[in-house]
């Protein structure tokens, strides 16, 4: 598929409508994000492992808002852009998405249920994704076993903030997880469970299940088991699917009739 991707990227660059294309490069034995320009040798372009490219696009927008760029993005990454645009963190007009369809294997590994980007230019859209995400079976809530499970999981936390730093949609200017009013500074592990519940709650109407947070977590806390469940709740209650429609307002920012709330704009979590 890399070969195909090189051709597609070369074409996009040749058209000259973008300044460059953000993708992945294999170099010096390591794979990382890279910005390909017209005329660059594209042999080093690769497609995996995936990196949080929407995060890089956020930095682009912050430091060079007038540059129009292309980006090789998977389905979840495109959905991240949609959520970011709702929060005015990226400008969709300034990004040409070069859609990359995950292989069936990749999709299975991620437990993806949401599928390919809208405009697939590399690979073929995966068919037959499961209807519903398969969650781990959580222990019973009644006898406290479920709470114990989360206590054990969250007590592994080394407070690296990787789950926040890497998350493409965690884009608040001031993060409540780092605010001493909410979470005591310096204690390790952070006390159960405000630190983690802040993040979880804030993800309920914006997480796009790219699972970058879990990949970044050095102690393998199954973070999206919580986030993903909340997403399903939000979908059920408010008929809202993250990352689908740039025009749909996040439900926690609208009235009971889905009208925008005028009173205050989002701060912190929403």
């Amino acid at each position: 598929m890399s070969e195909e991707a090189r051709g597609v990227v070369a074409e996009v660059l040749a058209k000259g409508e973008v300044d460059g294309v953000l993708g992945l490069r294999e170099d010096e034995g390591a794979v990382g994000p890279h910005y390909f320009r017209k005329g660059d040798d594209l042999d080093s372009l690769v497609l995996s492992p995936k990196y949080a490219l929407p995060l890089v696009l956020r930095w682009f927008r912050l430091h060079s808002p007038d540059t129009r760029v292309g980006a090789v993005l998977r389905g979840c990454e495109e959905r991240a852009l949609v959520e970011l645009s709702k929060r005015r963190q990226v400008d969709l007009e300034m990004i040409e998405v070069i859609g990359l369809a995950c292989t069936a294997e990749e999709a299975k590994e991620c437990g993806c249920v949401n599928g390919s980007p809208t405009n697939v230019m590399i690979g073929t859209p995966t068919e037959g994704l499961p209807e519903r995400r398969e969650f781990l079976a959580l222990p019973d809530a009644d006898d406290g076993a479920r709470l114990d499970y989360w206590k054990a999981q969250y007590s592994k936390c080394i407070k690296c903030y990787g789950c926040k730093n890497v998350c493409p949609v965690c884009a608040c200017e001031v993060c409540m997880m780092a605010d001493h009013g909410w979470v005591r500074g310096g204690s390790l592990p952070p006390k159960f469970a405000t630190f983690h519940l802040i993040k979880a709650y804030h993800m309920a109407d914006r997480c796009i299940e790219c699972r970058e947070c879990e990949a970044a977590c050095p102690v393998s806390i199954p973070l999206t088991e919580m986030y993903g469940r909340l997403l399903r709740d939000v979908e059920r209650r408010f008929d809202y699917v993250t990352g689908a429609d740039p025009e749909q307002r996040p439900p926690l920012l609208t009235t009971l009739m889905d009208e925008p709330i005028l009173e205050e704009e989002e701060e912190g979590g929403g």
């Binding site: 479920r146 979880a200 109407d205 909340l230």
Partner: peptide, 10 residues
């Protein structure tokens, strides 16, 4: 959402 969260948390 908070109530849902409490359920998941146990």
């Amino acid at each position: 959402v908070l109530e849902d969260m409490m359920v998941h948390l146990g």
